[in-house]
């Protein structure tokens, strides 16, 4: 592989996990997360020469988020909501199968709850907690003041806790 591709992949592949989480949770179309990630890389590659600035991760996340959100807007005109389907399981790692199955159930619950948060709160949570961007980076990304973003994330955390607690209560009934 030639130098340009090598340099690009070395700079960007370490961020693939973060991009996958953004692709999966920033929008509602979980099935297409892998496609969004691939498309993010292709677009980033085409614009690699323009990439300046300190954070490659923030740059990649911007591209990914734009893809997910513009796709979401297109879809919103056709379907009201895309439910999380039951076969939408997370990839399994090396853990014990039973453990992994239980962990998968928990992940699904959290993913479903996250999906129900108001858009801004969900985005702040995804970008800060799942993508690890700083509040300043998220503020730049969403075009809102830093404090607003921090307060969205806070509300997101509380709503998430409340949704999960409600679900727990329902299950115990």
């Amino acid at each position: 592989m030639d130098e340009t591709r090598q340099a690009f992949l070395e700079a960007t592949l370490p961020h693939i996990d973060v991009l996958y989480r953004v692709a999966r949770h920033a929008g509602h179309d979980h099935h297409r997360a892998e496609d969004f990630v691939q498309e993010t890389y292709l677009r980033a590659y085409a614009n690699f020469a323009d990439h300046r600035g300190p954070s490659t991760r923030a740059w990649l996340v911007t591209i990914c988020l734009n893809l997910v959100r513009s796709d979401g807007r297109r879809r919103a005109r056709r379907v009201a909501e895309v439910p999380l389907s039951s076969d939408d399981s997370y990839p399994v790692g090396g853990r014990d199968v039973a453990d992994e199955a239980l962990a998968g159930v928990d992940r699904e619950r959290v993913a479903r709850a996250l999906d129900r948060l108001p858009e801004h709160h969900r985005l702040a949570v995804v970008l800060m907690d799942l993508a690890g961007l700083s509040a300043a980076e998220v503020a730049a990304q969403l075009g809102r003041p830093r404090n607003t973003v921090l307060s969205w994330a806070h509300r997101g955390h509380r709503e998430l806790a409340a949704l999960l607690a409600t679900e727990d209560a329902d299950r115990e009934l």
Partner: peptide
């Protein structure tokens, strides 16, 4: 509640599926 919400999100800090790279 903020702490609980943050902790729940740990569940979603998973790696990309094998093969995506």
């Amino acid at each position: 509640a903020d702490r609980e919400g943050r902790q729940a999100l740990d569940e979603l800090r998973v790696p990309a599926p094998p093969g995506l790279g």
